[in-house]
Design a protein around this nucleic acid. Structure first.
Lengths: 338, 338
DNA sequence: ATGAAAGCGCTAACAG
DNA sequence: CTGTTAGCGCTTTCAT
């Protein structure tokens, strides 16, 4: 059941060294004859090299760590899917870690991944604290951070062009004729959400519209948060006629508030949300979304990390931006999801 | 940067053996004095035991493998989240693997996990082939299968009570007064989808309704599949007035077909779908769903696997069923997701 | 109560 | 072209 390279060597009538060289196709030459006998023995015994022993010996490992806040949000599972895909294609296995937006869990997972001596880590921070990157750096673990701007290029980063997304969303609403456009923010602003907000502000300014703080309200993450946030906005003496929401879950929640006020979408009101729920634009066509390339970000992040690992260069001070897209479903015609 | 137990031993003025005994709190006794010096040295050096070396020496590992078809479907990420949570609480790290519903990838991942000498595997098969379980068994890897009935108890299994779900869904529609109730199936039936379908049949029979094959149509997995399937059903000379769909994505897609025919939900037509998309019942309130306890299944599965690993009993011939719930959103009032 | 040493399975330097 | 051997970092038996 637990067959080792010694078993293979014995059966093939060669030394364990030769087995190793055949398996790894070098770095030492070996005869065709030896190769054939080794391969045959491997087949017969169903031998599979022990990656644990291999990693110990090589002082490097073929595993990566992925730390995400919470895959209950499809955004993070999409990124993870992209990461795992590319990792697999390059012979790496990935450890999945859920930090639950909690700093202490992030730190615990960093320790755990260090204990496993992973070759690298992809981190989507759930807090604004830099301690996790610092610790990873101290441990000497190559790291790529997704979706957060990291100060001083401590580690390379990769994110969607959230500023452009905020700009596109707002410009879309302005082009529809809206002049009072609200914004529902995230409770604690991280760099990605700040960029979205700054894009919103930039679009308003560029079109000569005032920045009105009363139209900006702090929401949360989920449906109910959007509902309450929009109720707040609709209670204003001078209501907005449109909003941009930090994410689509809140935008969907906001629809319920509109319904209760007898307002119709589109017509009376318009909404744009950033695409956390991958399928939101399908299940909820009255919502316009800013599509974020989640899967691609995961792929790209893993790509970058693996190249950092394999060429031993020092991590470059990179901040890569990926394109976003505005997706309008309204135009395909309403669907009676009442 | 890479500090070992020798470094700790040297600094503490003890042997590596003592360091090990202190860290693991046994199995050999040690003096309070030695303990204090070791702990202090560990702190000073920032030492963290190398899990790779430990696993090699112990001939067992603290890692689990999780093989799922595709976390693009939130169903699987929810299960994974439950698995990882419980694993973490028990000191295990989990390797995430996406088989993409492909047998050859499942087999490759089984090999990869074996190479990593994982302590156990949680498998959600994406195909009807038993080869992956067989291989896991040959490798002597403890396995728990989720969502598939395994013949002859090759490995213990865990699933939602899909039969009951199919029954509940259908009974709900019958209670609403529907008499011609269609069903949209999955292309390749696995045990879980067969159970759903059998539950549907059982409910019809129990209420004295005929089983009409013309009302049963093969769909797919995603929105568009549901759309086309329902169009097919609506083209029948004697249309159904309600359907049960294998999953909620297809049910949501079906709504578009209804809209095109000018049919209203509820009233003209009713739908029930099994809950793949966790948030579907919120984003699409006109849909009634059968809630599947995905997160709990993951937790339960990991629990079971870890207990199999830790007490070395032979895997029992278990088939655990978890409760499902019928969730009706219509009653909370319509939301204008038109 | 503790230190020395063997060995988990692998790779690679050394010596033919 | 190939066999022998040391050693990766850890746990645990053996000896004291």
């Amino acid at each position: 059941m637990n067959v080792t390279s010694s078993d293979v060597a014995r059966l093939a009538g060669v030394s364990r060294a030769t087995v190793s060289y055949v398996i790894n196709n070098g770095p030492r030459p070996f005869s065709e004859d030896a190769k054939a006998r080794v391969l045959e023995s491997i087949r017969q015994l169903g031998y599979q090299p022990n990656a644990v022993a291999r990693n110990l010996r090589l002082q490097r490992s073929s595993t990566l760590g992925l730390i995400v806040p919470d895959t209950h949000n499809p955004y993070f599972s999409e990124v993870g899917r992209g990461v795992e895909r590319v990792a697999f294609e390059n012979g790496y296995t990935v450890f999945l870690c859920h930090s639950g937006y909690k700093l202490d869990l992030e730190m615990q997972y960093v320790d755990m991944l260090h204990a496993q001596r992973v070759a690298g880590v992809i981190l989507i921070p759930g807090t604004a604290d830099f301690a996790p990157y610092q610790k990873l750096k101290e441990y000497g673990i190559r790291t790529v951070v997704i979706d957060r701007l990291v100060p001083d290029g401590i580690v390379p980063g990769l994110m969607a062009d959230n500023f452009h997304g905020g700009f596109l969303a707002t410009k879309h609403l302005i082009d529809l004729g809206h002049r009072r456009i609200g914004y529902i923010r995230r409770p604690v602003d991280l760099s990605h959400s700040r960029s979205r907000y700054e894009g919103y502000q930039a679009a308003l300014t560029e079109h000569g519209l005032p920045l009105d703080d009363t139209l900006v309200v702090i929401g949360g993450f989920i449906f109910e948060d959007g509902y309450h946030a929009l109720r707040e906005l609709l209670a204003l003496p001078e209501r907005p006629t449109a909003i941009v929401a930090y994410n689509d879950m809140m935008a969907i929640g906001a629809l319920r508030a509109l319904y209760e006020m007898g307002l119709h979408v589109p017509g009376d009101f318009s909404l744009v949300g950033f695409d956390d729920i991958a399928q939101a634009s399908y299940t909820c066509p009255s919502l316009t979304t800013i599509f974020l390339p989640k899967y691609e970000m995961g792929q790209h992040g893993a790509d970058l990390l693996i190249s950092l690992i394999e060429k031993r260069d020092p991590p470059p001070d990179l901040q890569i931006l990926l394109d976003v897209k505005l997706i309008i479903r309204e135009s395909t015609g309403p669907v009676p999801y009442k």
